[in-house]
């Protein structure tokens, strides 16, 4: 069955069912239970997590490993147990991107990454030390690189 949304950003978008992610607990503070992971530009490191229920809601996301080589996610024991990740090997990790007019001001939220596996997504609180809520994505040449986690 084909799925189409009328996105306020992108107009009519045909959703590939393979890209649909169910969020049983929604995104933290935003809710929503179904999002699609849209890659509008294959060359860009940015993707969109687009709500299927709300045509105006979409968050830019990216793979943090591409920017922070030592990034890692650590969960509390309770979260680990709740998510049942022990037996899961292929987990995709994304972080939300706060875009800006200036590239140097782009930040990502390393504190609350989004884990996706088997069509199911969870935004979690990262316990790894040093994970910032607003980590600069492009530390420019004159600045010390941001310590990742």
């Amino acid at each position: 069955m084909s799925l189409t949304i009328e996105s306020s950003r992108f107009g009519r978008v045909e959703i590939d069912p393979e890209t649909v992610v169910e969020f049983p607990d929604g995104l933290i503070g935003l809710g929503g239970s179904r999002y699609a992971l849209l890659a509008n530009d294959a060359d860009s490191p940015f993707l969109w997590l687009h709500s299927i229920e709300d045509p105006t809601l979409a968050l830019p996301v990216t793979n943090p490993h591409r920017f922070f080589s030592d990034f890692k996610v650590e969960l509390t024991d309770d979260d680990g147990e709740r998510l049942g990740l022990d037996d899961v090997t292929a987990v995709a990790v994304y972080v939300t991107v706060c875009a800006s007019n200036v590239l140097d001001d782009f930040t990502v939220n390393l504190k609350a990454p989004i884990l996706i596996w088997s069509g199911s997504g969870h935004q979690v609180i990262n316990q790894a030390p040093g994970c910032e809520l607003r980590a600069r994505l492009f530390a420019d040449a004159g600045r010390e690189p941001e310590p990742a986690c």
């Binding site: 503070g29 935003l30 809601l57 830019p60 706060c98 939220n109 504190k111 609350a112 809520l133 607003r134």
Partner: peptide
């Protein structure tokens, strides 16, 4: 996290 999610969605 809620504020960051909202900021990202608006950004």
């Amino acid at each position: 996290v809620k504020r960051e999610n909202e900021a990202a969605a608006r950004s």
